[in-house]
Amino acid sequence: MDELIYTLKQQIIEALNLEDMKPEDIDENASLFGEGLGLDSIDALELIVMMEKNYGIKLQDPAKGKEIFKSVAVMADFIAKNRTK
């Protein structure tokens, strides 16, 4: 799981162009949206694409993203359970 969390942090930084950020800077339990990393609605959509591209997970309902993208840890847990690649 720790490895997945670290990889995921790298993928988030790359997908969302979080320049000047390193995986160590992201607290896997902190909120991704609002406070925390301060991501917005376009970032959420981009994370959906990232999950499909890297893990073969198709998320049809963007509203579901709200729960999954709570934190990196929650995301990693969801990916571990649902990944197809």
Partner: peptide
């Protein structure tokens, strides 16, 4: 085929 919303906007 992975259309990117962040690119599209």
């Amino acid at each position: 085929f992975f259309p990117s919303p962040a690119a599209f906007v």
